[in-house]
């Protein structure tokens, strides 16, 4: 371990060329007595991949869940396209163009890829016994998206529970971009994947950013994924931001130091 404390060094805001798609400032969130977010902030810019890193319990998942509408923040500023946004449910977030790929993927194992892709937003027509799913149209749309993602050879009709981890991850990502969002959030997209599958996911995500999407990724894979496949790194500690880096300027060690640095008892009490 190198003993350099880089905690405060890169804590300056980085210059940006455009306005953020999403800007969250000073977010507070408690679960009962657990103060999970203590003034956390993050901005998401078009075409940029921002990584959220931090120790277990730092509040990364909670922050992205607030962005995704899964949890409502207790307080803080939440702006989308520079306008205050009131996001309190996942549907609100989706309506504002924020799509999420959850760590647990949130797929229904008993349903096939098409059904999972459209879940909650099926194309329907009316019938005597309720909304009838327009399966053929869903399937055509699903194929288009999968082909665009170079996943055209994935079966659309097998239950996704019977597929590999990488395939399921890809389906979850395909699902997030089906409705052409502006921002895609991915929580630990490579955690359960082999090295080659993780590389595929990284390529896929870079493709999305190149299309102008803003990407937020939570990841523990600092040394490979975070420093190589992202543009900006936000380090979180104890529910707040500890440091900010450009990915091309740092090494994995520097990021890890910022993650663990300065965690004396004094900070824990704050």
């Amino acid at each position: 371990m190198t003993a350099t404390d880089s905690g405060g060094l890169e804590n300056k805001s980085l210059p940006q060329k455009s306005v953020p798609l999403v800007s969250m400032r000073n977010i507070q969130k408690s679960f009962g007595s657990v103060h999970a977010l203590r003034g956390a902030s993050v901005d998401v810019y078009p075409g940029e991949i921002v990584a959220l890193v931090g120790d277990n319990g730092a509040g990364k998942s909670t922050l992205v869940k607030v962005m995704a509408g899964v949890h409502a923040a207790d307080s803080g500023d939440f702006e989308i396209d520079s306008k205050p946004a009131n996001i309190r449910t996942p549907a609100d977030a989706t309506a504002h163009g924020i799509a999420t790929v959850y760590q647990d993927l949130a797929l229904c194992n008993n349903l096939d890829a098409v059904q999972n892709l459209f879940l909650g937003r099926e194309l329907t027509g009316s019938s005597l016994f309720g909304r009838r799913i327009r399966r053929a149209e869903c399937e055509v749309r699903a194929r288009e998206v999968m082909t665009r993602m170079r996943l055209g050879n994935l079966s659309l009709t097998r239950p996704v529970g019977a597929m590999s981890g990488g395939q399921r991850q890809n389906i979850a990502i395909a699902r997030s971009i089906l409705w052409t969002p502006k921002v895609v959030i991915l929580d630990e997209p490579t955690a359960a994947l082999s090295h080659s599958a993780a590389q595929q996911v990284a390529d896929l995500i870079r493709g999305l950013a190149d299309d102008g999407l803003g990407i937020v990724i939570v990841s523990h894979d600092i040394h490979h994924f975070v420093v190589n496949a992202t543009d900006r790194i936000e380090v979180m500690r104890l529910g707040a931001n500890a440091a900010s880096f450009r990915s091309k300027d740092v090494t994995g060690e520097m990021v890890v130091n910022a993650m663990v640095g300065g965690n004396e008892g004094v900070n824990l009490a704050g």
Binding site: V70, T89, P90, A91, T94, T100, Y102, D104, A106, L107, C108, N109, N110, L111, Q115, L119, G120, R121, E122, T124, S127, F129, G130, R131, R132, I133
Partner: peptide
């Protein structure tokens, strides 16, 4: 209803993963 309708599909979705169903709206 079970095979063709949205309600039918949601029964299967909720039964397999109600949290995923909830997040899907």
């Amino acid at each position: 209803v079970l095979n063709e309708t949205q309600f039918g599909l949601y029964l299967y979705a909720v039964g397999n993963n109600d949290e995923a169903a909830r997040r899907a709206g």
